[in-house]
């Protein structure tokens, strides 16, 4: 009884780190569309950051508005690039199997470069890298659906 109470208090006061009994569920539902949507957001926010102009005068209110807007754009770009990276890594590590690697020998290189581009898009404000990320996600889309023998899934963008 005392031991049980002691463990209860320890659990309450000292939260344990998480170890994954990792599971994607039995549904087997994967779709690179999620990565595509996040990537589109990264491209869009990169453009908005590059287009946003600081106020010409020294008006404090205008400068505050500019800084606030810029901060929000940067935060969203950061978040969306991270989510794109997570979606890409889930496809890479959970969906794709060794037999797919035999079918597409450059699979690891493709995903590694895509994940690296996500990092670049977080670190930089670089439209070229954002668009390269979109191209990489398009490549993943094509490979993904090819592994399912579905050639009728079109590549499209929402924006």
């Amino acid at each position: 009884m005392v031991l049980r109470q002691l463990k209860k208090q320890i659990k309450h006061w000292f939260p344990a780190p998480v170890a994954q009994a990792h599971c994607d569920g039995p549904c087997g539902v994967y779709d690179p569309a999620a990565a595509r949507i996040y990537t589109e957001a990264v491209v869009s926010m990169t453009r908005k950051i590059l287009d946003l102009q600081p106020p010409a005068d020294q008006n404090p209110q205008a400068m505050a508005t500019y800084l606030n807007t810029m901060s929000r754009f940067i935060q969203i770009k950061e978040e969306q690039a991270q989510k794109a990276k997570e979606e890409i890594l889930i496809l890479w590590t959970d969906y794709f199997k060794p037999q797919h690697l035999e079918q597409f020998p450059d699979l690891h290189d493709m995903f590694w470069k895509a994940a690296k581009l996500c990092s670049s898009c977080k670190v930089e404000v670089n439209l070229q890298h954002a668009e390269e990320l979109m191209t990489a996600v398009q490549g993943i889309h094509q490979v993904f659906w090819a592994t399912k023998n579905r050639t009728n899934v079109p590549w499209y963008k929402a924006s």
Binding site: F14, V18, Q20, A21
Partner: peptide, 16 residues
């Protein structure tokens, strides 16, 4: 070390 299990893949031995 103390760790908390997250996920269902170790059922029925370990629960989330």
């Amino acid at each position: 070390q103390r760790w908390q299990v997250q996920g269902r893949s170790m059922l029925p031995t370990l629960h989330p």
